[in-house]
């Protein structure tokens, strides 16, 4: 059974969001016909919200809530899925200059997975860093569709995916209730826990989905351009 999850969202636990988790879930319930989400992942900025317990809200709205983090590195922002005590001991998520390659490799070694997000965004996206630095190794996937992207940013992400053969996810990057689920990821498998999410992200059996109204999906580069 396929599972559709918004892999990138921020609740009021992030410094720049005022969206309560309950309001997100209520919105998803109201807009399910347009944005048929099974769950969301809260990727709070520079922190892991270890103490949060959303089980009552999950039951009330029948929407899964998983927790992850968005960290800041020398190659831009990255989503960290499968955060655990070992990862938190090794990396200080409040550091805005984390070494990206160490984070990717260290998190993988400790059971998680790292996905660079909004790669087409200036300064905080992978594309710009690849212009001046060598490409990162062991990148599992990147965020091809980001609901907060400005014109051209998702298109740059598409070119990156084509060039390097990365797998692709989608997420809304919502900081406001009504924007939740505009972009998401459809997994072939049933995903119910963060461990299953990490396993599936490594498997590659998923694709980004775009629920933004009237938006064309970013065009991939022509096949002959790939690898250039």
């Amino acid at each position: 059974m396929a599972t559709i999850i918004d892999l990138h969202s921020h609740s009021e636990a992030s410094d720049d969001s005022r969206a309560p988790v309950g309001a997100y879930l209520n919105w998803i319930k109201l807009r399910r016909a347009e944005r048929p989400l099974d769950g969301i992942v809260l990727t709070e900025h520079r922190q892991y919200n270890r103490a949060a317990d959303y089980r009552a809200l999950e039951d009330q709205f029948d929407v899964m809530v998983l927790r992850a983090s968005e960290v800041e590195t020398d190659y831009g922002h990255m989503l960290v899925f499968g955060v655990n005590d070992d990862i938190l001991r090794r990396f200080d998520f409040s550091n805005v200059r984390l070494p990206a390659q160490e984070v990717i490799d260290g998190v993988a070694e400790l059971g998680g997975v790292v996905v660079p997000c909004h790669p087409g965004r200036p300064t905080v996206g992978l594309c710009e860093h690849y212009e001046t630095k060598p490409p990162l190794e062991n990148v599992t996937a990147v965020e091809l569709l980001n609901g907060g992207s400005r014109k051209g940013e998702n298109e740059r992400a598409a070119a990156l995916v084509d060039r390097y053969g990365y797998r692709a996810i989608g997420g809304s990057d919502s900081h406001m209730v009504s924007l939740i689920g505009l972009c998401a990821t459809r997994f072939d498998a049933d995903v119910r826990t963060i461990d299953e999410l990490v396993r599936e992200l490594k498997s590659g059996r998923y694709e980004p989905v775009d629920f933004r109204p009237n938006r064309p999906r970013p065009r991939r580069a022509a096949p002959e351009m790939a690898g250039t």
Binding site: D15, H45, R46, E72, G76, H77, V96, R97, R121, P122, T123, V124
Partner: peptide
């Protein structure tokens, strides 16, 4: 007072 990175840099 705090630092973060965004489209405009650190």
């Amino acid at each position: 007072m705090y630092e973060k990175t965004g489209r405009s840099g650190t």
